[in-house]
Amino acid sequence: MAERVMAEAVFDDLIHPSTRLSIVALLASADWADFAFVRDRLGLSDSALSKQFATLEDAGYVHIERPVTQHRRRVRVRLTDTGRRAFVGHVAALQEVISTAKLGARSD
């Protein structure tokens, strides 16, 4: 991964479910993203995505902003530093699983 954030390899149960992993991975590649962008890319309903964001926000992983631009209310979501560290740590943990399995296969 090209992430600059350094984090220990820690498996994160909150991030791992596929929908949340996709949301966090998408946000990890962006400074911020519109709610609609994430919804469209993941093919989720508004309510399903809101629920996932609420879980991630409660954990302090995402920050939700509601700026008003051109008289339109928008919802922007960004990954917090805590969220980014958790994501990088989770990816490192997944990579560790693979490298450990490879080592195990070689030693057999």
């Binding site: 991964m1 791992h16 596929s18 992993l21 996709s22 991975a25 998408l26 990890a28 590649s29 890319r41 990816v91 997944l94 990579q95 699983v97 693979i98 399995a101």
Partner: peptide, 12 residues
């Protein structure tokens, strides 16, 4: 783990 990492790459 591979599937999860593939999903991460796809999102990137």
């Amino acid at each position: 783990a591979r599937l999860a990492l593939d999903a991460v790459e796809a999102r990137r």
